[in-house]
Structure formats: C-alpha cells, structure tokens
Design a protein around this nucleic acid. Sequence first.
DNA 1: TATGAATGAGTCTTCATTCAT
DNA 2: GATGAATGAAGACTCATTCAT
Lengths: 190, 190, 190, 190
Amino acid sequence: MRLKDEHKLNAIIRATLELTNEKGLAGIRMSDLAKRAGIATGSLYTYFEDKQNLLLSVNRSVRSTAARYLRHQFREEDTLEHRLEHTVKRYVDYVGEHREAILFADLLKRSPYMTEAASQETMDHFQFLLDMVEEGQQSGMIRTGDPEELLHVMDSIVKAMVDFQLFHGRPYTKNIQQRTWGIVRSALIG
Amino acid sequence: MRLKDEHKLNAIIRATLELTNEKGLAGIRMSDLAKRAGIATGSLYTYFEDKQNLLLSVNRSVRSTAARYLRHQFREEDTLEHRLEHTVKRYVDYVGEHREAILFADLLKRSPYMTEAASQETMDHFQFLLDMVEEGQQSGMIRTGDPEELLHVMDSIVKAMVDFQLFHGRPYTKNIQQRTWGIVRSALIG
Amino acid sequence: MRLKDEHKLNAIIRATLELTNEKGLAGIRMSDLAKRAGIATGSLYTYFEDKQNLLLSVNRSVRSTAARYLRHQFREEDTLEHRLEHTVKRYVDYVGEHREAILFADLLKRSPYMTEAASQETMDHFQFLLDMVEEGQQSGMIRTGDPEELLHVMDSIVKAMVDFQLFHGRPYTKNIQQRTWGIVRSALIG
Amino acid sequence: MRLKDEHKLNAIIRATLELTNEKGLAGIRMSDLAKRAGIATGSLYTYFEDKQNLLLSVNRSVRSTAARYLRHQFREEDTLEHRLEHTVKRYVDYVGEHREAILFADLLKRSPYMTEAASQETMDHFQFLLDMVEEGQQSGMIRTGDPEELLHVMDSIVKAMVDFQLFHGRPYTKNIQQRTWGIVRSALIG
DNA sequence: TATGAATGAGTCTTCATTCAT
DNA sequence: GATGAATGAAGACTCATTCAT
C-alpha cells in the first residue's frame, strides 16, 4: 500500500470512530462514512470487502493501538504493584483520550457484526495483562479467581470511571487516574 | 370487541428481550417481533406508536421491574453494611436471572433510540440506592467521591462479574453473589 | 331504516364532506370518518359495503340534494331568460353555501372511485337544465353548440366565481350572484 | 460514474403525467412510476427527496412549460384584443395537446401534496396574463372586477371546453379554438 | 347491532453494494 | 483506481376490512 492510501485508511478509521460517537453503530451509513473521510462511497470497497469487514478492521486497528499504548518496558527492579499501577493509570489515560475508540469497540463487541474469530483475536492483544494478574495471584497479592474475570472487572471499572466523567460533560483530567487506581487496587487486592 | 390485552403486552416485551439477545438491538425487525409475540405486525402499532416508543416502553418496564426487585423493607436494626450487602447480592441475582433484560437496557442506553427524558426517568427509579451510598459516605464507611460515580462503578462491577460468567457458558450460580460482593465491598470501602 | 339510523347516515355524510375539505379525498381514513361521525369504525360497514360504496353514496346524496335545490316551479308566463337567471343564481347560492359538497363531488369525479354508472346517474339529475338550454337554442337566444357543452361551461364559470371568492377567504355574499349571472349570460348569449 | 440524466428526468415527468391520467393522483405508486420511467424504484430518490417533492417538481415543470408556451412577442401595432385572442387560442391549444399535464396540475392543486409556497410560485408564472387583463380593464374593453377573478373564469372556461371535447372521446381539433374564444370574449367583454 | 382491536397486504423510503464512466 | 449514480432487497409503518365480544 502506498502512503497516499495509508492516509485514506486513517481517514476512514477516524470517520468511523467519529460517526459511531455521533450516531451510534447502527446509524453509520457507508455513504456518510465516505463523505466524512473525503472519498467516494464506491472507494470504500477498494479498501474493505464490505461493511462488516470495514468495522472489524477498524476494531482491530483500535485494539492494537491500545495494546501498544499499554505495553511498557519496565525495569528489573519494578515491583508488580508498581507495574500494575502504571498500567492501570495508562489505561485510564488511554480511555480518557480515546473515548471514541473505546465506545466504538464496546458497541461493536455487542453487535451482530462481531464474529467469534475477531473476538478471540482481541484477547490475544492483551495476553500480557493476564500474565500480570496471574503473577500477582501467585505471589498472593491479588485475590484469587479466574484471572480473566478479574481483568474484566478491572476493565469495566476503568471504563465506568471515565465514562461517568465524560458523560457529565466534565473534561478528562489526570486526577481521575489516581481515583480510579484507588478503586481498582482495592477491588483486586481486597 | 376485543380488549387490549395485558397478556399480549407481556408477550411483546418478552419477544423484544429475546430478540435483542439473539440479534442485537439493530437486528430487531418489527415483523419478527410480532411473529415471536404471536400477533400480526400491524398489531404492534395498536400498543405502541412506533418502534422507538416500543423500545423505550420495554425499557421502562424492565427498569421498574428491576427497581421493584431491589427495594426491600429492612428492619430498624439492620446495619448499613448489611443493607448494602443484601442489595448488591440481590442485584447480582437479578442480573443473573434477567441478563436478557440487562443486556437490552445497556444496548438501548447507547443507541440512537434513547432520549434525554427517558434517560432521566431511569435514574429516578434508583434514587434509593443513591441515598444508601450517601448515608455510607456520611458515616465514613464508604469512600468519598460523587455518589453517582460510585453507584456507576458498583453497577459495572456486578454486570462484569455476571457477564463473564454467562459469556463463558457457565450457568448462573449463587456463589457469584459472594464473590461479587467481596469485590464491590472492597471497591466501595477501600 | 329507522330514524336513529337516518341520523347516523347524515352524520357520516357530513363527516365525509368535512374531512374531504380538510384533507382531500385521498386523506380520508375510514377510522377518522367514523370518529368524526361519532360511531365505531366497524359500524361504517353496516351502512356501506366498502369505502367506494360509501363515497359514491355520499356523492349520490349530494347530487340529488343539489338537483332538488335547483328545481323550481315556474309560472306559465316566466320567460326563459327569467328562468335561466333564477336557476343560475340559485346555483351560485347552492355552491356558495355547500362548497364542501361541491368540492367533494368534483374531487370524486376525477378519482379512481368514480364508476361509469355513477357518472351517468349524475347526469340524469340535471336533465331539466339540458332541456332549458335546448329550448333557448331553439328560440335563438342561446348560442349554438352542444347543449351539454354549454352546461359544462356554465357550471365551470359558477364554480370558478365562487371558488375564487372563498379561496381568498372572503365570505360568500349574495352580490356574487349578480356578477356571476352577468358573466354566464354573456357567455351563453354571446 | 454515471451522470444524472436530463433524459431520465424527462422520463419520470412523462411517467408521472401518464400514470396520473390513468389512475388518478392517489393511485400513483413510486414503484409503478419507476417502472414506467424505466428505472429502479430507488433511483427516483436520487432525483427527488420524496414523493411530495417529486410531484411538486413535476408541477413546476408543467407550469413553466405552459407559461413559456403562452408568452409571445407581439408587434407594436397589435391591439389588445388581438393579443388576447391569440393568447386564449394558444392556451386552448396547449390544454388540448397537454391535457395530461393540465389534469395533473388540477388534481395536484387540490391535493394534500400542495403547499402554500408552491401555489404562490405558480401564480408568478402567469403574471403577464394578469397584466393583460388589467390593461383591458383600464381601456374599458374588459368588464370590471378583480383581474385575478376574471383570469380564473377564463381559465375554467377554456378547460371546460377542452375537457368536454376530450371526455367525449372526440379528438382535439383547432375549431375548438374559435368556439372557445367566442365564449371567453363574450364573458370578458360582456 | 355496535364496538374497536386485530389483521396483513401494500406503500414509501433507506442503504449496502454494484458498475458505467 | 476513483467516482457517485443506479440498483433492489429490505424494513417501518398505514389503513381498509374483519371479527371476537
């Protein structure tokens, strides 16, 4: 793919996220998507096979961007709690600054567009988080239970916190990081 | 003359919840809804003005049923923690046994069908929960912060726990109540 | 038919004329008609076989009422011009006071509801007018040409005059009679 | 890319006039319209926003075509009567040759599709006729009265004459022009 | 006989996808 | 490859007519 195309691809992704935010997932029309991305409707089909394929691709892009954002090279001496705290806060940050992407991914997950394969693929991106939780459980720091379940809870707390903030029109600010970590920490560690 | 039928109304509500679960909110067709409810398509319009009105009505029904389920007359000597625990467990129970209703409400909340008015109306049903949280904050038991925010977090934890359970095909069992209360308790009390 | 039914029949006719005036012929719903007439929708079908039958019946009623209004026993010595003038003025009067009925009949005539038979039946009501025109032509007073054609022209002039008046919101007043007769007289006599 | 086509637009207009003639205004189905015009149903909506918009556009087209047909550059020395006669005869001609268009416009005028704005727009096309009538009144040639009213009468006489002819299955022939002008002349001049 | 809820065929309109240019 | 007009299969909604009460 040439650079020019890369540009358009990004324009399509951005348009998808924006429109989902404005009108919900069901409200997205291919024609609107194209207009917003600055291309012709028909051109969408040179990039994606169909609408489902487009949405799943956007989803993949969003997920991998998020995973890349969360990964971090820690130093040898960083404690697990330190690493967890850093990761959670970073996640809060990501959700706050990319709420459009998060909303999109959440809506897509529950929609008829989602497939089993795509769902599994998503999990793979976040394997390192699972590893972290398991490590915590082995050392006795994190409460027992299915690590995936705890991750799920963690995820939902972060989203609930940021959502609440933004839903009420308050801008995203860094101090939510601290509050959220406080709650997540208690929830995980008990 | 045939009388408008409470029975049929319930059939419509049930059909809506079932179909939403199977195909998502966007996948609901009025014709399918009617078929599932055992009536003619046109008949839906003797009960509801249009599709939006139908969905919001189902939502209202679901919410008020849930609120009724959660309310409980406590005895004078019940401590706040006892009352909280009882309420949370009951909520877990409700979510577990009515996950179709819960999924429907969650999807509708994010959909273009939702209106500001209907959204506000929903909150009113759960005022008593807010009161409980505030009481806990005044006595120093519950961590500080916007009570609505904490409620939101509580809600999302419960749903995350049950969702996870059911998503993995495991049946809903009472022991999730205990685990969930453990996490919620930690999250709220810190 | 009993008196009570006669009442309802009139109510239906009145409702039909009113609604046609308000919403046009195509905008008439059987349910609205019934509501306006103060009866149940289903009851319409005990009076008329179907919608077309109802509309044609109303038309028949309107036409015969008009014909009855126009007929007049003239004295032996009344000249043809006197009789013509009297009839035209009376027609102006009728159109002015029953514009709803006139509009209804005009719309129905052009609609898919009209049948050949009903159309012919209408003409019969006004045979006496044709006779009058023919008499005038034989005496050389009225210009030559197909009598039916002249009647048609006369009819359209009267309606045009009254329509214009009412369309512009001016109330119907008797002086339109004089103006209209002036024009019709010139048109017929040349 | 295919370009929006003047040709197709004309096909749609023609189809609309034809179908209105065959089935009345209320009997027009978008699907039939498309079939008759030789395009797909959905394509109608690339040319017109909705059914009302389509009908009003056809009306606009019909009206302006008629107005264009009636306008004529007269010579300095042409008397008013000559100009009137020429215009009326031309109008007879137009009505005779475009009775479908005339019927359509008449039906639309009385239908729920008509709007106040579209109605006013129509009048503007025929301002030059009003001017002619007023000029005749000032010179004492045409009888007194609201010019618009006289125009209305003139219009209705012409339509009545042609309608009668065609309704009885007789072909349109030029000699109707003479007969109609005779009547209109008498009616206007008195 | 009166009622008005129920029916379902019929209509307008939308929109993912195709395709001529 | 890009364009956006064209397509036609849905889907929401209407309303004349039927029918259980």
